[in-house]
């Protein structure tokens, strides 16, 4: 066997081993990376009021209500099984709309309302001009798991 081929095989084996190791590590991490509570897991977890937690889910359609002061907003976050009322004071991101994904840092108050200190909105992978927003995007393959129910 030529030396050149030996070197090629050595490099290839090393590359495959490395990528395999990285993939294994990544898939292990994937199990661990619990990024936030959803309304359903929050309901089960019995988190005490005042403890800093993170909540993620979809903004329920028709639930966003802006208070008279103009900066306080209250809305309902939902997942498949449960809902959670959230209130937030501050500037909301562009992508914070009904039906969009949202991640909020904050804590539960005594009344069971989630008081958010920061609000992150999630984008889906669709980019649509304003004039076209009324066309039905739900038919597109890409949207099917990100559109709100």
């Amino acid at each position: 066997m030529k030396q050149k081929h030996q070197r090629l095989i050595l490099v290839m084996v090393a590359l495959v081993a490395l990528i395999g190791a990285a993939l294994l590590a990544a898939s292990a991490l994937r199990e661990e990376a619990s990024y936030f509570y959803t309304p359903a897991t929050l309901a089960k977890a019995k988190v005490e009021p005042g403890k800093a937690i993170r909540l993620g889910g979809m903004v329920q359609n028709g639930s966003i209500k802006r208070a008279a002061d103009g900066v306080t907003v209250s809305f309902i976050v939902q997942d498949r099984d449960a809902v959670q009322t959230v209130s937030y004071t501050g500037i909301t991101p562009d992508l914070f709309v009904e039906g969009s994904g949202v991640v909020a840092d904050g804590k539960l108050d005594k009344g069971g309302v989630f008081v958010a200190e920061s609000l992150l909105a999630k984008h889906d992978e669709n980019y649509v001009p304003r004039e076209l927003k009324d066309i039905d995007m739900s038919a597109a393959e890409h949207t099917k798991d990100t559109l709100a129910k």
Binding site: D124, P129, L132, H142, T143
Partner: peptide, 23 residues
């Protein structure tokens, strides 16, 4: 795909694009 948290999924894949032609 693995850690679905903040960044949205790929808009342009081999299967097509979710970005409107205007962009």
């Amino acid at each position: 795909v693995w850690w679905e948290s903040q960044h949205q999924k790929a808009s342009i894949t081999l299967g097509g694009s979710a970005i409107s032609d205007a962009y």
